[in-house]
Design a protein around this nucleic acid. Structure first.
Lengths: 192, 192
DNA sequence: CGTCATTGTGCAACAAGTTGCACAATGACG
DNA sequence: CGTCATTGTGCAACTTGTTGCACAATGACG
């Protein structure tokens, strides 16, 4: 759905081979649209077929041979058209919230521990984003074209901030009261 | 992945037919694990086959005939086991952030309008959650088993609060400066 | 009585993402 | 020179979610 557009964006920023793309995904676009190398190669194939990108002539086409792609005008147009679309936000789909809901029914002895684990992970991610912000967006220079990229990063930061805040609160609330064993009325040994 | 567990949770809260489940999904569990009736029927079939739920005997098995399901002990055990699992948070996958990133490269005349539209949608969702909170979790009574459900709802509220906050900020920042048409010159804009 | 909207159940084809593995080139090292 | 780890490319099978439609019962209405 959006993967081809993610790839076009990345290739416009800089022509790359499949593996380079994969690497760059891991540390920028992949933060909000993750993808494996398998997916990327498959999509590169389709995009080439469709005439939106092409392999740079320098690289001979052989398996196991490095192959760099660049975006063709058709690809740029396609991307611009996609950006201009109105598209509703994805519905949320979060297993942790679901598990908490289930825990309210069947009980969950270890739930608080799991919340703590998630808190640690989100704190890590938050720190990573903040590091990037320090590095790439120092307070003084505000080149106009970087503003969008900075906003995207702020999105990531704010999102992780939400998670750490909510998890902290949840842990605090469940921890004090011996809750977390929830309303599991029969299958659950009640825990002190 | 999680859909069967969402269904088990819902059925434990109250035995239901496929359509009833669908309705209930639309206004509670579906907020963080949406699902269509087709998916639900398919999953009900699998769960029944696997011996985790069964149709209540009252209903004769015929197409177009109402059929209520209840959870069997095996289903409850399965759900409890799933709740106890450690499972990492889903990676974020958000088209809007992706489109902003693309807009930084190809330009985006209408982007601010789209952000406003999303802001309105998130405000609406937030209002809906807050209404539910007022209705189902009035400040005085804090039954212990409801605490988890309330926390889940708080998660939804905090998440929508994050979105409205971020979108407001983004709109403010892009609107004043005539940005949003971004760096759409051509394939330049190299970023390390 | 017919037919028509509504409620309820369900199959089938497709699209997107995940997992596992295979194959090709390259350079390091004994 | 062989073989081994690393880098790079890619296919295939599978799982999950989406879309479109079909079929069955029921009650309302002319």
């Amino acid at each position: 759905m959006s993967l081809p557009h993610a790839i076009l964006t990345a290739l416009l920023e800089k022509p790359s081979s499949g593996l380079e793309l994969t690497r760059r995904f891991d540390r920028s676009i992949g933060y909000f649209w993750p993808s494996t190398h398998q997916q990327i190669y498959r999509e590169l194939g389709k995009l080439e077929q469709a005439g939106r990108i092409r392999a740079l002539p320098s690289s001979q086409p052989a398996r196991g041979r490095k192959k760099e792609y660049e975006v063709l005008p058709a690809g740029r147009d396609e991307l611009a058209a996609w950006v201009a679309l109105a598209e509703d936000p994805r519905p949320v789909r979060d297993p942790l919230l679901l598990r908490m809901r289930a825990a309210a029914v069947v009980g969950a002895p270890g739930l608080v521990g799991e919340l703590r684990r998630h808190l640690a992970l989100h704190r890590e991610q938050l720190a990573e984003y903040e590091e990037i912000e320090r590095r790439d967006f120092p307070p003084e220079r505000t080149a106009d074209e970087d503003r969008l990229r900075h906003l995207v990063l702020r999105g990531g930061i704010d999102l992780e901030t939400f998670w750490t805040g909510w998890l902290t609160r949840a842990i605090g609330e469940l921890d004090g009261t011996g809750a977390g064993t929830g309303g599991g009325r029969d299958g659950t040994g009640a825990v002190p």
